[in-house]
Design a protein around this nucleic acid. Structure first.
Lengths: 215, 215
RNA sequence: CGACACCACAUAAC
DNA sequence: GTTATGTGGTGTCG
Protein backbone atom coordinates (compact mmCIF):
# COMPACT_ATOMS: atom_id res chain seq x y z
CA UNK A 1 0.00 0.00 0.00
CA UNK A 2 2.86 2.35 0.81
CA UNK A 3 0.72 5.25 1.95
CA UNK A 4 2.37 8.55 2.46
CA UNK A 5 5.74 6.94 2.92
CA UNK A 6 6.97 9.14 0.14
CA UNK A 7 7.03 11.97 2.68
CA UNK A 8 9.08 12.04 5.87
CA UNK A 9 12.71 11.22 5.55
CA UNK A 10 14.51 14.19 7.04
CA UNK A 11 13.41 13.31 10.55
CA UNK A 12 15.90 11.69 12.90
CA UNK A 13 13.41 10.94 15.64
CA UNK A 14 11.11 8.85 13.47
CA UNK A 15 11.98 5.49 14.90
CA UNK A 16 9.51 3.26 13.16
CA UNK A 17 6.63 3.31 10.73
CA UNK A 18 3.47 2.83 12.77
CA UNK A 19 1.65 1.42 9.78
CA UNK A 20 3.88 -1.63 9.82
CA UNK A 21 3.63 -2.79 13.39
CA UNK A 22 0.02 -3.89 13.31
CA UNK A 23 0.28 -5.74 10.02
CA UNK A 24 -2.15 -3.58 8.13
CA UNK A 25 -1.07 -5.11 4.87
CA UNK A 26 -3.26 -8.07 5.69
CA UNK A 27 -6.93 -7.68 4.79
CA UNK A 28 -9.18 -7.91 7.82
CA UNK A 29 -12.46 -9.76 7.58
CA UNK A 30 -15.57 -7.78 6.80
CA UNK A 31 -17.32 -6.59 9.95
CA UNK A 32 -20.10 -4.34 11.09
CA UNK A 33 -19.07 -0.81 11.90
CA UNK A 34 -20.97 0.67 14.78
CA UNK A 35 -20.63 4.35 15.39
CA UNK A 36 -24.25 5.01 16.24
CA UNK A 37 -23.29 5.76 19.79
CA UNK A 38 -21.62 8.91 18.58
CA UNK A 39 -24.76 10.19 16.88
CA UNK A 40 -27.35 12.33 18.56
CA UNK A 41 -30.31 13.89 16.80
CA UNK A 42 -30.35 17.65 16.81
CA UNK A 43 -26.65 18.15 17.20
CA UNK A 44 -25.08 20.86 15.16
CA UNK A 45 -22.33 19.69 12.93
CA UNK A 46 -18.94 20.38 14.40
CA UNK A 47 -20.36 21.45 17.75
CA UNK A 48 -20.63 19.30 20.83
CA UNK A 49 -23.98 17.67 21.39
CA UNK A 50 -25.94 19.51 24.05
CA UNK A 51 -26.98 16.23 25.60
CA UNK A 52 -23.76 14.29 25.85
CA UNK A 53 -21.05 16.74 24.87
CA UNK A 54 -19.81 14.52 22.10
CA UNK A 55 -19.41 15.70 18.55
CA UNK A 56 -22.21 14.62 16.26
CA UNK A 57 -21.82 12.12 13.47
CA UNK A 58 -23.56 12.25 10.16
CA UNK A 59 -24.52 9.07 8.38
CA UNK A 60 -21.90 9.72 5.73
CA UNK A 61 -19.26 10.61 8.27
CA UNK A 62 -16.87 8.33 10.05
CA UNK A 63 -15.76 9.72 13.40
CA UNK A 64 -12.64 8.26 14.88
CA UNK A 65 -11.49 9.24 18.34
CA UNK A 66 -7.75 9.09 18.95
CA UNK A 67 -5.60 9.65 21.98
CA UNK A 68 -2.00 9.20 23.03
CA UNK A 69 -0.65 8.51 26.48
CA UNK A 70 2.88 8.79 27.75
CA UNK A 71 3.53 7.76 31.31
CA UNK A 72 6.30 9.44 33.29
CA UNK A 73 6.39 12.20 30.74
CA UNK A 74 8.09 14.84 32.82
CA UNK A 75 10.25 12.35 34.71
CA UNK A 76 13.64 10.97 33.70
CA UNK A 77 12.38 7.45 34.06
CA UNK A 78 14.66 4.88 32.54
CA UNK A 79 11.62 3.17 31.05
CA UNK A 80 9.42 5.61 29.17
CA UNK A 81 6.17 4.01 28.04
CA UNK A 82 3.84 5.42 25.46
CA UNK A 83 0.59 4.11 24.07
CA UNK A 84 -2.28 5.07 21.86
CA UNK A 85 -5.98 4.37 21.65
CA UNK A 86 -8.15 4.47 18.52
CA UNK A 87 -11.87 4.34 19.12
CA UNK A 88 -14.25 3.69 16.23
CA UNK A 89 -17.28 2.38 18.09
CA UNK A 90 -18.22 0.27 21.07
CA UNK A 91 -17.06 -3.30 20.42
CA UNK A 92 -15.77 -2.33 17.02
CA UNK A 93 -13.00 -4.65 15.82
CA UNK A 94 -11.31 -1.59 14.40
CA UNK A 95 -10.67 -0.21 17.86
CA UNK A 96 -7.00 -0.20 18.62
CA UNK A 97 -4.93 -0.09 21.76
CA UNK A 98 -1.21 -0.60 21.79
CA UNK A 99 2.01 0.42 23.36
CA UNK A 100 4.55 2.46 21.42
CA UNK A 101 7.71 1.30 23.12
CA UNK A 102 10.10 3.62 21.36
CA UNK A 103 8.18 6.83 21.51
CA UNK A 104 9.01 9.03 24.44
CA UNK A 105 7.08 12.29 24.30
CA UNK A 106 3.41 12.86 24.76
CA UNK A 107 3.24 14.91 21.58
CA UNK A 108 4.65 12.17 19.38
CA UNK A 109 2.20 9.76 20.96
CA UNK A 110 -0.64 12.11 20.02
CA UNK A 111 0.60 12.51 16.45
CA UNK A 112 1.07 8.78 16.09
CA UNK A 113 -2.48 8.28 17.24
CA UNK A 114 -3.57 10.70 14.52
CA UNK A 115 -1.67 8.78 11.85
CA UNK A 116 -3.13 5.51 13.00
CA UNK A 117 -6.60 7.01 13.14
CA UNK A 118 -6.33 7.85 9.46
CA UNK A 119 -4.94 4.43 8.61
CA UNK A 120 -7.88 2.84 10.41
CA UNK A 121 -10.24 5.16 8.55
CA UNK A 122 -8.88 3.98 5.22
CA UNK A 123 -9.38 0.39 6.27
CA UNK A 124 -12.94 0.95 7.40
CA UNK A 125 -13.87 2.76 4.21
CA UNK A 126 -12.27 0.15 2.03
CA UNK A 127 -14.05 -2.70 3.76
CA UNK A 128 -17.52 -1.33 4.32
CA UNK A 129 -17.77 2.34 3.57
CA UNK A 130 -17.09 2.41 -0.14
CA UNK A 131 -19.45 4.91 -1.71
CA UNK A 132 -21.08 5.74 1.60
CA UNK A 133 -18.55 7.45 3.79
CA UNK A 134 -17.31 10.68 2.26
CA UNK A 135 -16.02 12.38 5.39
CA UNK A 136 -13.60 11.27 8.07
CA UNK A 137 -13.28 13.12 11.34
CA UNK A 138 -10.30 12.67 13.60
CA UNK A 139 -11.50 13.65 17.04
CA UNK A 140 -8.73 14.40 19.51
CA UNK A 141 -8.10 16.31 22.70
CA UNK A 142 -4.64 17.32 21.57
CA UNK A 143 -4.50 20.90 20.44
CA UNK A 144 -1.06 20.15 19.12
CA UNK A 145 -2.43 17.58 16.71
CA UNK A 146 -5.57 19.43 15.68
CA UNK A 147 -4.27 22.97 15.41
CA UNK A 148 -1.07 21.61 13.95
CA UNK A 149 -2.99 19.96 11.13
CA UNK A 150 -5.62 22.65 10.62
CA UNK A 151 -3.77 25.94 11.15
CA UNK A 152 -0.06 25.61 11.55
CA UNK A 153 0.96 23.23 8.75
CA UNK A 154 -0.31 25.68 6.16
CA UNK A 155 2.15 28.29 7.36
CA UNK A 156 4.89 25.76 7.90
CA UNK A 157 4.67 24.50 4.33
CA UNK A 158 5.02 28.04 3.08
CA UNK A 159 7.82 29.20 5.38
CA UNK A 160 10.01 26.10 5.27
CA UNK A 161 8.77 24.55 8.53
CA UNK A 162 9.84 27.36 10.80
CA UNK A 163 8.36 28.06 14.18
CA UNK A 164 7.03 31.52 15.05
CA UNK A 165 10.20 32.00 17.07
CA UNK A 166 12.34 30.96 14.13
CA UNK A 167 13.27 27.46 15.17
CA UNK A 168 12.61 24.23 13.35
CA UNK A 169 9.30 22.49 13.80
CA UNK A 170 10.22 19.67 16.10
CA UNK A 171 8.00 16.86 14.88
CA UNK A 172 7.96 17.82 11.22
CA UNK A 173 8.23 14.22 10.02
CA UNK A 174 5.09 13.20 11.85
CA UNK A 175 3.12 16.10 10.46
CA UNK A 176 4.32 15.20 6.98
CA UNK A 177 3.13 11.66 7.54
CA UNK A 178 -0.23 12.98 8.63
CA UNK A 179 -0.42 15.16 5.53
CA UNK A 180 0.38 12.14 3.39
CA UNK A 181 -2.47 10.16 4.92
CA UNK A 182 -4.85 13.05 4.49
CA UNK A 183 -3.83 13.52 0.90
CA UNK A 184 -4.45 9.89 0.12
CA UNK A 185 -7.95 10.05 1.53
CA UNK A 186 -8.73 13.33 -0.22
CA UNK A 187 -7.51 11.80 -3.49
CA UNK A 188 -10.10 9.08 -2.96
CA UNK A 189 -12.79 11.73 -2.58
CA UNK A 190 -12.94 11.67 1.19
CA UNK A 191 -12.90 14.89 3.18
CA UNK A 192 -10.74 14.77 6.29
CA UNK A 193 -11.49 16.95 9.29
CA UNK A 194 -9.81 17.34 12.64
CA UNK A 195 -11.94 18.22 15.63
CA UNK A 196 -10.63 19.38 18.94
CA UNK A 197 -12.60 18.28 21.97
CA UNK A 198 -11.90 18.58 25.63
CA UNK A 199 -10.37 15.68 27.47
CA UNK A 200 -13.62 14.58 29.08
CA UNK A 201 -15.26 14.07 25.68
CA UNK A 202 -12.54 11.75 24.50
CA UNK A 203 -12.92 9.21 27.26
CA UNK A 204 -13.18 6.13 25.07
CA UNK A 205 -9.90 6.64 23.23
CA UNK A 206 -8.26 7.69 26.47
CA UNK A 207 -9.36 4.49 28.14
CA UNK A 208 -7.98 2.39 25.31
CA UNK A 209 -4.62 4.10 25.50
CA UNK A 210 -4.45 3.67 29.25
CA UNK A 211 -5.47 0.03 28.97
CA UNK A 212 -2.51 -0.48 26.68
CA UNK A 213 -0.19 1.14 29.19
CA UNK A 214 -1.39 -1.10 31.99
CA UNK A 215 -1.01 -4.30 30.00
CA UNK B 1 -20.75 41.53 64.44
CA UNK B 2 -20.36 41.21 60.68
CA UNK B 3 -17.10 39.26 60.81
CA UNK B 4 -15.19 39.05 57.64
CA UNK B 5 -18.26 39.67 55.62
CA UNK B 6 -16.42 42.59 54.12
CA UNK B 7 -14.49 40.05 52.09
CA UNK B 8 -15.99 37.61 49.60
CA UNK B 9 -18.34 39.14 47.14
CA UNK B 10 -16.98 38.08 43.77
CA UNK B 11 -17.92 34.47 44.38
CA UNK B 12 -21.01 33.09 42.70
CA UNK B 13 -20.89 29.73 44.42
CA UNK B 14 -21.12 31.13 47.94
CA UNK B 15 -24.68 30.14 48.62
CA UNK B 16 -25.05 31.27 52.19
CA UNK B 17 -23.19 32.81 55.07
CA UNK B 18 -22.50 30.01 57.52
CA UNK B 19 -22.26 32.49 60.38
CA UNK B 20 -25.93 33.25 60.07
CA UNK B 21 -27.45 29.83 60.29
CA UNK B 22 -26.68 29.13 63.91
CA UNK B 23 -27.72 32.54 65.17
CA UNK B 24 -24.35 33.58 66.45
CA UNK B 25 -25.56 37.11 66.88
CA UNK B 26 -27.21 35.97 70.09
CA UNK B 27 -24.94 35.82 73.12
CA UNK B 28 -24.67 32.32 74.51
CA UNK B 29 -24.71 31.79 78.24
CA UNK B 30 -21.41 31.60 80.02
CA UNK B 31 -20.16 28.04 80.27
CA UNK B 32 -17.14 26.06 81.25
CA UNK B 33 -14.79 25.27 78.41
CA UNK B 34 -13.10 21.93 78.75
CA UNK B 35 -10.30 21.17 76.41
CA UNK B 36 -8.16 19.31 78.87
CA UNK B 37 -8.68 16.13 76.96
CA UNK B 38 -6.59 17.55 74.20
CA UNK B 39 -3.66 18.20 76.49
CA UNK B 40 -1.00 15.67 77.22
CA UNK B 41 2.03 16.35 79.32
CA UNK B 42 5.28 16.14 77.46
CA UNK B 43 3.95 16.93 74.05
CA UNK B 44 6.00 19.24 71.97
CA UNK B 45 4.20 22.29 70.76
CA UNK B 46 3.09 21.90 67.19
CA UNK B 47 3.98 18.21 67.07
CA UNK B 48 1.65 15.28 67.60
CA UNK B 49 1.68 13.77 71.06
CA UNK B 50 3.66 10.56 71.14
CA UNK B 51 0.99 8.92 73.25
CA UNK B 52 -2.21 9.76 71.46
CA UNK B 53 -1.15 11.38 68.22
CA UNK B 54 -3.12 14.52 68.99
CA UNK B 55 -1.61 17.95 68.89
CA UNK B 56 -0.82 19.34 72.29
CA UNK B 57 -2.58 22.28 73.85
CA UNK B 58 -1.00 24.93 75.99
CA UNK B 59 -2.98 26.62 78.69
CA UNK B 60 -3.08 29.77 76.60
CA UNK B 61 -4.05 27.90 73.45
CA UNK B 62 -7.48 26.96 72.25
CA UNK B 63 -7.47 23.94 69.98
CA UNK B 64 -10.50 23.43 67.81
CA UNK B 65 -10.89 20.33 65.69
CA UNK B 66 -12.92 20.73 62.52
CA UNK B 67 -14.08 18.33 59.84
CA UNK B 68 -16.34 18.32 56.84
CA UNK B 69 -18.24 15.44 55.25
CA UNK B 70 -19.93 15.18 51.89
CA UNK B 71 -21.69 11.94 51.06
CA UNK B 72 -22.74 13.02 47.57
CA UNK B 73 -19.22 13.77 46.50
CA UNK B 74 -18.52 11.43 43.62
CA UNK B 75 -22.12 11.32 42.40
CA UNK B 76 -24.54 13.48 40.48
CA UNK B 77 -27.08 13.27 43.27
CA UNK B 78 -29.78 15.86 43.03
CA UNK B 79 -29.80 16.10 46.81
CA UNK B 80 -26.33 16.92 48.07
CA UNK B 81 -25.73 15.98 51.69
CA UNK B 82 -22.91 17.72 53.44
CA UNK B 83 -22.18 18.36 57.08
CA UNK B 84 -19.54 19.68 59.41
CA UNK B 85 -18.34 18.95 62.90
CA UNK B 86 -16.61 21.38 65.27
CA UNK B 87 -15.08 19.83 68.36
CA UNK B 88 -13.91 22.03 71.22
CA UNK B 89 -13.97 19.53 74.05
CA UNK B 90 -15.95 16.60 75.39
CA UNK B 91 -19.44 17.79 76.37
CA UNK B 92 -18.54 21.32 75.44
CA UNK B 93 -21.58 23.37 74.52
CA UNK B 94 -19.48 24.97 71.84
CA UNK B 95 -19.29 21.73 69.93
CA UNK B 96 -21.17 21.94 66.69
CA UNK B 97 -22.68 19.49 64.27
CA UNK B 98 -24.89 20.47 61.40
CA UNK B 99 -25.87 19.71 57.87
CA UNK B 100 -24.85 22.02 55.04
CA UNK B 101 -27.63 21.35 52.60
CA UNK B 102 -26.29 23.58 49.87
CA UNK B 103 -22.71 22.43 49.90
CA UNK B 104 -21.99 19.89 47.21
CA UNK B 105 -18.27 19.19 47.36
CA UNK B 106 -16.11 17.76 50.07
CA UNK B 107 -13.68 20.63 49.76
CA UNK B 108 -16.27 23.32 50.45
CA UNK B 109 -17.48 21.29 53.41
CA UNK B 110 -13.93 21.32 54.80
CA UNK B 111 -13.50 25.04 54.21
CA UNK B 112 -16.85 25.80 55.81
CA UNK B 113 -15.79 23.79 58.82
CA UNK B 114 -12.69 25.95 59.01
CA UNK B 115 -14.71 29.17 58.91
CA UNK B 116 -17.03 27.92 61.61
CA UNK B 117 -14.11 26.77 63.72
CA UNK B 118 -12.79 30.32 63.75
CA UNK B 119 -16.22 31.75 64.52
CA UNK B 120 -16.54 29.38 67.45
CA UNK B 121 -13.06 30.37 68.59
CA UNK B 122 -14.07 34.02 68.69
CA UNK B 123 -17.10 33.14 70.76
CA UNK B 124 -15.14 31.06 73.23
CA UNK B 125 -12.53 33.75 73.70
CA UNK B 126 -15.11 36.45 74.13
CA UNK B 127 -17.02 34.50 76.73
CA UNK B 128 -14.30 32.95 78.83
CA UNK B 129 -10.90 33.35 77.31
CA UNK B 130 -10.47 37.09 77.42
CA UNK B 131 -6.91 37.85 78.46
CA UNK B 132 -6.05 34.17 78.72
CA UNK B 133 -6.21 32.62 75.28
CA UNK B 134 -3.76 34.20 72.89
CA UNK B 135 -3.53 31.39 70.35
CA UNK B 136 -6.14 29.54 68.37
CA UNK B 137 -5.35 26.33 66.55
CA UNK B 138 -7.59 24.97 63.85
CA UNK B 139 -6.85 21.27 63.69
CA UNK B 140 -8.02 19.56 60.52
CA UNK B 141 -7.33 16.50 58.43
CA UNK B 142 -7.90 18.40 55.21
CA UNK B 143 -4.68 19.28 53.48
CA UNK B 144 -6.73 21.49 51.21
CA UNK B 145 -7.79 23.65 54.15
CA UNK B 146 -4.49 23.68 56.01
CA UNK B 147 -2.04 24.04 53.14
CA UNK B 148 -4.46 26.40 51.46
CA UNK B 149 -4.40 28.73 54.45
CA UNK B 150 -0.74 28.33 55.36
CA UNK B 151 1.06 28.07 52.03
CA UNK B 152 -1.08 28.66 49.01
CA UNK B 153 -3.06 31.81 49.89
CA UNK B 154 0.16 33.77 50.18
CA UNK B 155 0.96 33.03 46.56
CA UNK B 156 -2.63 33.41 45.47
CA UNK B 157 -2.90 36.89 46.95
CA UNK B 158 0.19 37.92 45.07
CA UNK B 159 -0.61 36.33 41.71
CA UNK B 160 -4.28 37.23 41.45
CA UNK B 161 -5.64 33.90 42.73
CA UNK B 162 -4.22 31.75 39.98
CA UNK B 163 -3.54 28.08 40.31
CA UNK B 164 -0.08 26.68 39.59
CA UNK B 165 -1.50 25.51 36.26
CA UNK B 166 -2.88 28.93 35.42
CA UNK B 167 -6.55 28.41 36.22
CA UNK B 168 -8.67 30.28 38.74
CA UNK B 169 -8.63 29.12 42.33
CA UNK B 170 -11.93 27.33 42.57
CA UNK B 171 -13.05 28.16 46.10
CA UNK B 172 -11.49 31.59 46.35
CA UNK B 173 -14.46 33.12 48.17
CA UNK B 174 -14.21 30.60 50.99
CA UNK B 175 -10.50 31.22 51.42
CA UNK B 176 -11.17 34.95 51.53
CA UNK B 177 -13.74 34.36 54.25
CA UNK B 178 -11.21 32.35 56.19
CA UNK B 179 -8.65 35.13 55.80
CA UNK B 180 -11.21 37.61 57.08
CA UNK B 181 -11.83 35.54 60.19
CA UNK B 182 -8.14 35.12 60.80
CA UNK B 183 -7.51 38.82 60.38
CA UNK B 184 -10.19 39.67 62.89
CA UNK B 185 -8.64 37.38 65.47
CA UNK B 186 -5.13 38.63 64.77
CA UNK B 187 -6.38 42.19 65.15
CA UNK B 188 -7.57 41.19 68.60
CA UNK B 189 -4.10 39.97 69.45
CA UNK B 190 -4.80 36.29 68.92
CA UNK B 191 -2.44 34.15 66.87
CA UNK B 192 -4.18 31.74 64.53
CA UNK B 193 -2.54 28.49 63.48
CA UNK B 194 -3.66 25.69 61.21
CA UNK B 195 -2.46 22.21 61.97
CA UNK B 196 -2.75 19.24 59.65
CA UNK B 197 -3.32 15.88 61.31
CA UNK B 198 -4.14 12.49 59.92
CA UNK B 199 -7.72 11.40 59.70
CA UNK B 200 -7.41 9.05 62.67
CA UNK B 201 -6.39 11.90 64.96
CA UNK B 202 -9.44 13.95 64.09
CA UNK B 203 -12.00 11.37 65.19
CA UNK B 204 -14.09 13.64 67.42
CA UNK B 205 -14.84 16.24 64.76
CA UNK B 206 -15.35 13.49 62.21
CA UNK B 207 -17.91 11.82 64.46
CA UNK B 208 -19.81 15.06 64.90
CA UNK B 209 -19.99 15.63 61.17
CA UNK B 210 -21.18 12.10 60.52
CA UNK B 211 -23.75 12.39 63.29
CA UNK B 212 -25.16 15.41 61.52
CA UNK B 213 -25.38 13.49 58.26
CA UNK B 214 -27.29 10.63 59.89
CA UNK B 215 -29.76 12.87 61.69
C1' C C 1 2.50 35.77 28.04
C1' G C 2 -1.33 32.31 26.46
C1' A C 3 -3.32 27.47 25.10
C1' C C 4 -3.86 22.26 24.92
C1' A C 5 -1.98 17.82 26.23
C1' C C 6 1.00 14.35 28.96
C1' C C 7 2.90 12.91 33.57
C1' A C 8 4.37 12.63 38.94
C1' C C 9 2.47 13.38 43.68
C1' A C 10 -0.42 14.80 48.04
C1' U C 11 -4.79 15.08 51.18
C1' A C 12 -9.65 14.52 51.75
C1' A C 13 -14.52 13.00 50.36
C1' C C 14 -17.35 9.06 48.43
C1' DG D 1 -12.93 2.23 41.41
C1' DT D 2 -14.70 7.78 41.37
C1' DT D 3 -14.58 13.22 42.38
C1' DA D 4 -12.67 17.40 44.61
C1' DT D 5 -8.61 20.28 44.79
C1' DG D 6 -3.90 21.55 45.21
C1' DT D 7 1.58 21.11 44.40
C1' DG D 8 5.57 19.89 41.17
C1' DG D 9 7.21 18.87 36.15
C1' DT D 10 7.83 18.30 30.45
C1' DG D 11 6.13 18.41 25.49
C1' DT D 12 4.97 21.89 21.92
C1' DC D 13 2.75 25.54 19.55
C1' DG D 14 1.07 30.84 18.79
Amino acid sequence: MAPGSSTSTSQPDRLFDPRKIWGFDIEPSVVEVDYGDLTHVGCEFSKPCKVCGRLAAHCNTLIIAVDGACCSNGRKDSTPQSALGIFVGHDSPYNLQTKLPWVRTNQVAELTAGVMGLVVAKKVIKNEGQGVIDTVVIKADSEYLVKGMTEWVVKWQMNGWKTAKGGDVVNRGWFEDLLGEVEELEDAGVTVLFWHVRREFNAEADQLANLALDG
